[in-house]
Nucleic acid binder design. Structure first.
Lengths: 169, 169
DNA sequence: CAGGTTATCGAATGATCTTCGGTTCGCTTG
DNA sequence: CAAGCGAACCGAAGATCATTCGATAACCTG
């Protein structure tokens, strides 16, 4: 089962995130690595039914082509003393929307911030944060978000539980 | 499964999830594995400054104690043909809130579902989904969510971009 | 202060990763 | 249609790594 040649893809205009055709082996590799990123190459090769060398080359290609964006340990925020999680909806000033990417970039560098969703609708983005306590949360919302002149308003919702369904492709 | 007090930890009856003290080495290991879950044990040991055998024992203990919940490859949904992402806020019927865990568990098994946030506030939970197209999204909202009698209403917001700040502890 | 427990280390072994040359397959060219 | 070319695959072998083990040190606890 051969992979289609790269030649066919050349003519399209296409953004940087071009979709690359994935065959059954690729999908099996992705599913296995999404479930457990630390499987040995040997086991992975056996499971998807190719030689070890082929499997290694496939994984490297998937990383090179950004199909796999990274491998991460999922650390429980509570173990780090971050017992409180919240989802904060942020609305920006209408004239500040041009700089929205700066805002998001700055946010995602803060240690409390786990994820940022840039959304359509009444709010401009959602920020998923984890803090040690309500004090820290208040400080984040007050000092970091609302102090920014680009921010028109925020709405904070506590998160009781967060289930990551990833790991099952 | 409660996510209780951030306060005094001593008196509690203690679940399996009890907070365990982490030293500097543990934190360094967590930071390294959060950034790259596939570092070799040898490199990891050198970076955090302990022997390989000690490092291996530490990592195993962190996994055993659920400080590390898993190791996952971060796969770009677009590579799988899921070009559309959305955050769907779901409100349940007041008398259905007892079965909320069932609803969430059922949701998180669907292939479109990436994450589920069980929240306080006007909505009961948020569902982060990725679908191939608007058709699939409509089908998910209509056939899966609104068809469930426990669901009182939904509100769908498209996601333009999703930034994962994890990887930097 | 003795006993017991736990964490650490270094070295040896066993397993794995990674590279390499050779082969096949499909597509293009002459 | 055969030769040429490129891409992907495989198996084997050396380099590298993971894992186990016994010994040692540090720490409570009684």
């Amino acid at each position: 089962m051969p992979l289609p040649s790269a030649g066919a893809a050349a003519a399209r205009p296409l953004g940087p995130k071009d979709v690359r055709p994935l065959d059954e082996v690729d999908r099996a590799i992705l599913a296995a690595l999404a479930a457990d990123a630390r499987v040995s190459n040997k086991d992975l090769a056996e499971r998807v039914g190719v030689a070890q060398s082929t499997c290694l080359a496939r994984v490297r290609a998937l990383v090179r082509d950004r199909v796999i964006r990274g491998f991460h340990a999922d650390v429980d925020p509570r173990a780090l003393g971050h017992d409180l999680q919240a989802m904060i909806a942020v609305r920006l000033q209408p004239d500040a929307r041009g700089a929205i990417n700066d805002s998001i970039a700055a946010l995602s560098r803060r240690p409390e911030v786990l994820e940022v969703y840039f959304v359509a609708g009444a709010n401009d983005f959602l920020v998923h944060v984890a803090t040690p306590s309500t004090d820290e949360l208040r400080r984040f919302v007050g000092d970091v978000l609302n102090r920014d002149p680009a921010v028109a308003g925020t709405e904070t919702n506590l998160i009781f539980e967060h289930i990551r369904a990833r790991g099952r492709l």
